[in-house]
Amino acid sequence: MSWDVFIWFALAALLLWSVGACFAWKDKVKPVYAFTFAGLAVFFSFILWMWIALERPPMRTMGETRLWYSFFMPLAGIIVYSRWRYRWILSFSTIMAAVFICVNLLKPEIHSKAIMPALQSGWFAPHVIVYMFSYAIFGAATLMAIYMICFKRSETSARELDITDNLVYVGTAFLTFGMLFGALWAKQAWGTYWAWDPKETWAAITWLCYLLYLHYRKARPDNWRTACIILFVAIICLQICWWGINYLPSANMSMHTY
């Protein structure tokens, strides 16, 4: 099965991303783009291969969603880099991608061709892809918040806040897409667009957290520490929504467990 060769694709992609991240520290812009995009191409070709081999989108299991996360993290990193030239962002996004790749290598989940009828829908791919992209963007925003809280105790710069805000704006847009695509799909599959299923409840919670951030930043632009704390709460809620829900006793009846 194609999963066996994952390690080689992953190592190649990680190597390319790492080289790209090193060039970022040396401010060599062109090699940064070349290596990062080469890594993304290598990684995406594996995803594409899985898609073809499985004859379905590789998004069903947690392992498969982690695959997308590992892909989107460096993509989010390079987008941030292209706009703000932050030297360290690609190193962090590469480390994040590596963590998720390791989880996939250590805990591979069975990837069979089977896909239950409930998931056979045109909404499946866009719903999962935009969600994973927003999760990756929020991951980057959380890194910014950690950086500001830990290394910028006295004063933070307008630029750092600006990056964080932009990430949250883009992430919230994609989170909204993911949630509403889910609602439109649910109407098509189950007859109801919103049923307060535990996964839906936690999706609403995550969404409210980021709405709170957006409103709070406008209400109190100077209290950036509180804004960072909102981001920490938000990322915890996001993790509960993504995978924590499977361990939550209140959610053992969820229709979203596959």
Binding site: I205, P249, S250
Partner: peptide, 13 residues
Amino acid sequence: ALSLTIVMGLCFQ
């Protein structure tokens, strides 16, 4: 709204 919805998420409905 967020706090009450979190309570909803933590309590089996």
